[in-house]
């Protein structure tokens, strides 16, 4: 028996939308199919604008006092010059220069230091201790940051509450097409086994990110 069938246009970010549905008779298994589209944000200019704002808000704003934390960028030892993979934008363009401790903000792929002409190993080359790459958004220039997070993806998740008020579980994944089931004996990963009780269940749709033009979500629930 179909207990929920909803097609909704979701445009508002950071909200929880409650979708109650009635199970008229106790059942064996509840199956929920949860889809939304588009997943990927097509509009490149829009993506770039949002990511630039994101970078300004969360990354570059926090670099204003980097001079005091210069130790992290100071190259120890003698004049060791390591070739960075690609050294673009050393002194012009995206690189910021801090006078006090003569440190240069990281260029796209390399850290460059004044005076001793030391070039530290590029972020892309890997971590210093093991040769394997470490991540870190703060090491990126705005261009690399935008490139890393493009394309942007819309993200919706959902959770279930039973009529008796039990929080059955949540599907916090990036898949835009999911099918989950709940039954007394076992349930899909993310959900506890639970009796398919008669009464009002709630599916809560959580909107982590939707683009300006919105997404269409198709949610269907059936009880067998």
């Amino acid at each position: 028996m179909v207990v929920l069938e909803k097609s909704l246009s979701v445009k508002e970010n950071c909200v929880h939308i409650k979708l109650p549905f009635e199970v008229r008779e106790e059942g064996e298994r509840l199956t929920v199919s949860f889809c939304y589209a588009p997943k990927t944000v097509d509009d490149k200019a829009y993506s770039e604008r949002l990511l630039k704002e994101c970078f300004e808000k969360y990354v570059s704003a926090d670099r204003s006092d980097v001079e005091e934390y210069g130790e992290a960028d100071i190259f120890d030892g003698e004049n060791q010059v390591r070739e960075a993979e690609s050294c673009g934008n050393k002194l012009t363009g995206k690189t910021d220069i801090f006078e006090g401790k003569k440190q240069f903000e990281r260029a796209e792929k390399a850290d460059i230091f004044d005076g001793e002409n030391q070039v530290r190993e590029a972020e892309g080359r890997g971590n210093r201790l093991t040769g394997k790459a470490f991540g870190g958004e703060y090491s990126l220039s705005v261009g690399a940051f935008i490139k890393k997070y493009t394309p942007l993806k819309n993200l919706l998740t959902f959770s279930l509450d039973s009529p008796s008020g039990v929080y059955v579980g949540d599907a916090h994944r990036h898949d835009a097409n999911q099918v989950v089931f709940v039954s007394e004996k076992e349930s899909s990963p993310g959900f506890l086994p639970h009796k398919i009780e008669k009464g009002e269940w709630t599916l809560t749709l959580s909107v982590f990110f939707v683009e300006e033009k919105g997404v269409k979500a198709d949610i269907r629930a059936e009880v067998f």
């Binding site: 970010n13 949002l50 990511l51 994101c54 970078f55 808000k57 969360y58 990354v59 926090d62 958004e137 940051f145 890393k148 997070y149 942007l152 993200l155 982590f208 990110f209």
Partner: peptide, 13 residues
């Protein structure tokens, strides 16, 4: 606490 936030990493900051 200091991870980047939306939309690069939604809700992470």
């Amino acid at each position: 606490p200091m991870r980047v936030g939306a939309p690069a990493a939604n809700g992470c900051r």
